[in-house]
Design a binder for these strands. Structure first.
Lengths: 329, 329
DNA sequence: TTGTAGGCGTTATCAC
DNA sequence: GTGATAACGCCTACAA
């Protein structure tokens, strides 16, 4: 490995002069600088990240932690993060799995963005307490070194639920996510609030898993007990897709016999026939904001928690209730 | 930051004793070891990755480089990589974008797995020449420090093409990937070889992009010049999905008017109606093998290039040509 | 403008 | 078994 020492030797100067030259310090002659740079290039010199991190006590790397590498939501989210990171001179690395957690306490990364329930609150608070900087996207957690950038789950679930009610549906299924999912819990809370203030509607909860398979199982249940038009709110799009696919094998039609709405507006939904109604938000912006907030904390700035707003996308997968249509006639 | 020096002071021993104790050396009393470990825990000691990397000249981290974070192929692939890495005491980080390339020469990672055309061959050879270890999944590149783990693109494309021919189709469209994609070029070569030895078939190439939008555009073209049943080989599944979705807006039916086959067998295809015919291979195995090979090179082992084998999945998206059915009657 | 020297946190080679 | 001590490659007062 070629180090500044080798350059110094070859250039006949001291290592500090080399360091100054390489770092663009003004306290070095243009002449010596260019000589040093030439030699550095000639020797294929590349600075050693470990040595620099050790000395400067920062790595200029931000880590984002995901539960797994699957999942359609992540593409734009990560792109948004990377864009902001790179613009600010940081690199972004994506990690997954318990083993990788060490990167934060061992200071391989300067800060972490968390979207992974494999991190417990206790663990995150422990790191925060030791002065590591963290942004959480998947929970509420209060600490001076932790910033929250959360989706407005309640608003989204409220929009979706009210939409179904407004369309006149009287039997509404809710397909939930995993029990420990913050998103699922939040969305469910909002659904219940709407349910509490709505009369004449039958509410049925089906436990799901935020995966396609959960949507398929839900579809089977809905088909099994079908008595007339029903509405279904899958708490994420992935389950809605599974639901659709299972239903496509039957004679029931989405938007006619079964009215379906999802949550997330993942890319694929725009390709579905009929277009899936869902809750939209900018994944890119979410990621970008998360990175921004983290970098601000890293620079010692004070930041407030942030919220990502959502909108309703009306798709043909939800039509007016037949009953209501009859009434209108 | 608490270092071994702090532990040494508190335990009344030297830093070398602490280091030995922490690293499980046998040359330290059980008594002193347990005392040291207790103090380490008490002080919340965490080793510093940069210092260790600097000294040991390795980071125990492997980096995988992707063109972008989207793409349905990546989930299982990355999981396969991670599994092997973790089992061997390495961590896996996912990187994207030109800025992140520096991680390799700066020795932040011990080796790289490349699936990203933002790396030029020249760049990779330069790194290999400087003794960095690399596994490539997306090109042929010969160097002692570079190992190839490539998909058997030619076999896959041959299987797909021959399947269409066997089913009696006489007008076959090929929707390609980007010009600079190794996969696209390889697959296309195989198609041409089949075409050269097949008579009475009209071959039509449509330039695509490996994305859904490319499939949609292709569908429009096929619809526009429709005169009778046609077969389409989309060189990846993502385009096939775009193709299907566009066609779903018309009265043409997949498997009847248009016969469609893809490549990759991404998860979603199994949910499609009708089931998409495609070329299958184990993404998890591909990733696992890539990691294995890289770790072997890192340990100084000699390795041969590897190949990932593929199989044909017959789906209802490809039926017999109507013409042939007539002949058979 | 350049050089000297100390230190970042670890590991590893010596002595004792 | 334990303790000095010298690296690893880089940065940065401070001195010259």
């Amino acid at each position: 490995m070629v180090s500044i020492k080798d350059i110094a030797k070859k250039a006949g100067v001291s290592i500090s002069t080399v360091s100054y030259a390489l770092n663009g310090s003004s306290k070095v002659t243009d002449e010596t600088r260019s000589k040093i740079l030439a030699i550095a290039k000639e020797l294929n010199y590349v600075p050693n990240a470990a040595a620099r991190s050790l000395k400067k006590r920062e790595s200029r790397i931000i880590g984002v932690f995901l539960t797994d590498f699957k999942g359609d939501v992540y593409g734009d989210l990560l792109d948004g993060m990377k864009e902001v990171c790179n613009a600010q001179g940081y690199d972004l690395i994506v990690c997954s799995g318990k083993q990788a957690h060490r990167m934060l306490p061992e200071r391989m990364i300067d800060g972490a963005i968390i979207l992974d329930h494999a991190f417990t609150n206790a663990e995150l608070l422990k790191y925060a307490e030791r002065n590591h900087k963290i942004v959480v996207l998947d929970r509420e957690l209060e600490h001076p070194n932790i910033n929250q950038v959360l989706l407005d789950n309640k608003a989204g679930a409220t929009l979706a639920t009210e939409f179904l009610v407004e369309q006149g549906h009287k039997k509404i299924y809710i397909v939930t996510g995993p029990d420990d999912s913050f998103d699922s819990i939040q969305r469910m809370k909002a659904v219940k609030m709407v349910a509490d203030r709505t009369e004449d509607v039958e509410w049925i909860e089906i436990p799901g898993d935020f995966k396609k398979s959960g949507g398929e199982r839900a579809a089977e249940r809905v088909i099994g007990e079908y008595t007339g038009p029903a509405a279904v709110f899958c708490l994420n799009d992935e389950m809605a897709i599974g639901f659709c696919n299972r239903l496509a094998e039957t004679d029931y039609r989405i938007g006619e016999h079964v009215h379906l709405i999802g949550f997330d507006n993942i890319e694929l939904t725009s390709y579905m026939q009929p277009r899936l109604a869902t809750i939209n938000y900018s994944k890119r912006k979410w990621g970008a904001l998360a990175s921004e907030q983290l970098i601000k904390i890293l620079s010692g700035e004070e930041v407030e928690h942030e919220r990502i707003y959502v909108t309703l996308i009306k798709g043909e997968s939800v039509g007016k209730s037949a009953r209501q249509v009859n009434v209108a006639r």
